[in-house]
Every structure is written in structure tokens, then in C-alpha cells.
């Protein structure tokens, strides 16, 4: 292969980076379903159909007809959506679900039917990180899938670098950590040391159900209940694992680089089969 061939191939491929966030967000796969909406007011008295089918025990009904679905523990299997006789739990098709506070991921109470999406960092941190954010990734019991979809953000389709966000090799060069996995006890020391090595001010982002709550390993004596058990967390990105779009949305939201409520998506949320614009 000659150098000229490389250029020709490259020219032929053209620009492959998605238009988002300037253009519309690519649609999630039709069977993905996106985030959840939990309308506690619709719950039937004494019904616990959703609780019974929820394998990760992400749903509780704390008396008096209330319901609390923890999106930070959810594996998005949608068994509850199918089981609910009242249609109280629905899929929104929305990829956006990152939150700043852990309690904002608990859905079902009046006014908290959907995730309260993450607010941007304060002005001081935005000035520091808004146009240049260096992150160190630590997998602490991560399955490899969360890590893979973080890597995907660096590929040509997503091109995380265009936002000034970059993953770096040393915590000393980083502004914060991205943590995956439930925080296995065998990684606790390394995680703590890595966090301590990041200069102040610093932020921590927990990616995926395991990192937020322990996920499907919650309660195992070999793991903690997520990253926040070891270090303070500033952003929670739910998913099992989160779609790259969900992660990107969370990062941009944190940096205040998304206009609030820009719902430039189709009103159905997710396209029907065949209408999606898949991205890698």
C-alpha cells in the first residue's frame, strides 16, 4: 500500500463524525427503550408485580402506595414495564439519564417521575474544565463492556476530543476520574490511591449500574456498593452498560455544553425499526 492510497481511502470515507450535539442525537436501537418514567400515582394499591420481576431489586414499594425505582441499580431489562398492570412504568426512549445527585436517580415520587438531569458544574469549575477536561479511567471490577463503550467515545464517529475531553495515562495529569465497576475490594487501595493522586479541584464520574450502586453485585462481600463507597462522586451515568450517547450526554451536561431541554429529537423518542440512524 502506498501513502497515496491511504489518502485516497481517507478521502473516500469522508467525514464520519456525527453531527450531534449540533445536529440531532442519533436514535437509540429500537429495542433499547431508553430511560424509564415511573408514574407512582398510577400504581395499584397492594400491587407488587414490578417488585417481583425486578432481578436486581431496583424497585421497592415503601408503603402507602408509593413506589421507588432506582435507575442507578436498574439493568434496563424492561420486565417491570411488561409486568405493570397500570402502565405506571414506561420506557421514554430518551438516552439522557445522567444525574448529579444519587437520589435524583430514584423515580416514582410526585415530581420525580423522570430523572432530574445533571446540572452543570459551578462557574469556577466550568471555567477550569469547560473547554479542557482530562480524565483518568479506573476500572474497579468493571466487566470490560463499560470500558469498551468509553473507548468508543474516542473513535472517529464520536470524537470526544472535539469537546476538549481526553482520557490521560496518569492521574497526575487528570482533572478527574471515570470509575466503572462496583469498586471491588481488591481494587479499593488502588482506586483510593489513584483518586488521591489527582490534583484538586477534581471530579469523579461513576459509569454504569455497578459503579453507581454495586449493580448486579450489590451485596456481595467481595465488592463495595459502587464508587461512592470509596470516593465522592459528582456525576452518575446509569445504564447496563450505558450507551455511548448516554455517557457523552452526561459529560457534556456536566460541562454545561448542552443547551438545557434541547429536545431536537423526534417526539416519539426512539425511531421504529428501520428509521434509526445508527452510529458506532
Amino acid at each position: 500500500m502506498f501513502v497515496i492510497d491511504t489518502f485516497l481511502h481517507r478521502l473516500k470515507r469522508g467525514r464520519e463524525t456525527m453531527a450531534y450535539p449540533k445536529g440531532p442525537a442519533p436514535a437509540l436501537p429500537d429495542r433499547h427503550g431508553g430511560s424509564l418514567r415511573v408514574d407512582g400515582a398510577k400504581c395499584v394499591e397492594g400491587c407488587d408485580a414490578c417488585v417481583a420481576v425486578c432481578a436486581p431489586q431496583a424497585i421497592v414499594r415503601p408503603g402507602a402506595g408509593g413506589i421507588a425505582l432506582d435507575l442507578g441499580r436498574c439493568i434496563f431489562c424492561a420486565e417491570c414495564v411488561q409486568a405493570c398492570p397500570a402502565g405506571a412504568i414506561t420506557q421514554t426512549g430518551d438516552h439522557r439519564m445522567a444525574a448529579r445527585r444519587r437520589e435524583d436517580l430514584v423515580l416514582g415520587a410526585p415530581g420525580q417521575e423522570e430523572v432530574r438531569l445533571a446540572a452543570a458544574l459551578d462557574d469556577k469549575l466550568r471555567r477550569l474544565f469547560g473547554r479542557s477536561l482530562r480524565l483518568r479511567q479506573v476500572s474497579a471490577g468493571g466487566s470490560g463492556a463499560e470500558e469498551a463503550d468509553l473507548n468508543v467515545l474516542g473513535t472517529i464517529g464520536w470524537d470526544l476530543g472535539r469537546f476538549g475531553i481526553q482520557f490521560v495515562a496518569s492521574p497526575r495529569h487528570a482533572d478527574g476520574l471515570v470509575i466503572t465497576g462496583p469498586a471491588s475490594r481488591n481494587m479499593e487501595l488502588a482506586l483510593r490511591k489513584t483518586w488521591e493522586a489527582v490534583p484538586e479541584p477534581k471530579i469523579v464520574i461513576a459509569v454504569g449500574a455497578e459503579a453507581i450502586s454495586g449493580g448486579v453485585f450489590a451485596g456481595h462481600p467481595q465488592v463495595h456498593a459502587g464508587a461512592a463507597s470509596v470516593v465522592p462522586v459528582d456525576l452518575f451515568i446509569p445504564g447496563w452498560p450505558p450507551h455511548p450517547l448516554t455517557i457523552l450526554d452526561g459529560l457534556l451536561r456536566l460541562l454545561g455544553r448542552l443547551e438545557e431541554d434541547r429536545r431536537d429529537r423526534d417526539p416519539q423518542g426512539h425511531g421504529a425499526l428501520g428509521q434509526e440512524r445508527p452510529v458506532n
Binding site: 436501537p29 429495542r31 469498551a148 473507548n151 472517529i156 464517529g157 452498560p241 445508527p278 458506532n280
Partner: peptide, 19 residues
């Protein structure tokens, strides 16, 4: 890097999840 994502999206087409 991109084609890998295309294949992951085929799995997502089957079951909604890229993995």
C-alpha cells in the same frame, strides 16, 4: 474502531443492548 461499533449495533438491533 468504527466498524466494531457497527457490529455492536447489530447485536443491539437483535436485543437492544450492544453487548
Amino acid at each position: 474502531g468504527k466498524i466494531r461499533g457497527d457490529f455492536l449495533n447489530l447485536t443491539a438491533l437483535v436485543c437492544g443492548n450492544r453487548f
